[in-house]
């Protein structure tokens, strides 16, 4: 084999590999959000602007405040991480990647007490919102978005 074909094949293989690696490395934003109705609502956190309309329409609150968050870049699709506030903790355990997104196991803790557990296929194009317990006059929401 001459030099040119070998070089070309190597270049194509590297390009495909790099493209695949870039496609695979995606960031998942997970947040603990308190939704409330207040007289002077704060602006929507940037991570939630994409779904602002749905959040307001679905939950009926005018302010959404992030009390805990985590951003995790997934490389293997097998990582796990924790988003915490003072009293709540959201443990996310990624259990594999599919063409459409990631298989995740989510656990919501109140201090050390497990309140809720769910398994989900988080799509790269479709955010997930979980309605948690009522907190005071507001509502705890868990939000996961592939960025």
């Amino acid at each position: 084999m001459g030099r040119s074909p070998a070089f070309l094949i190597s270049f194509i293989a590297l390009t495909i590999g790099a493209t695949h690696a870039l496609q695979g490395a995606e960031t998942v934003w997970s947040g603990l959000v308190i939704a409330e109705n207040v007289a002077q609502p704060q602006p929507m956190p940037p991570e939630l602007t994409r779904i602002e309309g749905s959040l307001k329409k679905f939950f009926g609150y005018n302010q959404f405040e992030v009390i805990g968050q985590s951003q995790k870049t997934l490389k293997t699709g097998q990582e796990d991480w924790l988003a915490t506030s003072k009293f709540f903790g959201l443990h996310v355990d990624a259990r594999g990647e599919t063409e459409a997104g990631y298989v995740l196991n989510l656990k919501l803790y109140k201090e050390k007490e497990l309140l809720l557990e769910t398994d989900t296929k988080l799509s790269k194009r479709s955010p997930l919102v979980i309605k948690g317990p009522q907190v005071g006059g507001g509502q705890l929401l868990l939000v996961l978005v592939v960025q």
Partner: peptide, 16 residues
């Protein structure tokens, strides 16, 4: 918005 919502009812309410 392609949003999926897991809606829970009856979880223990917590203080503010």
């Amino acid at each position: 918005d392609r949003v999926t919502v897991l809606w829970t009812e009856g979880l223990q309410s917590l203080p503010a």
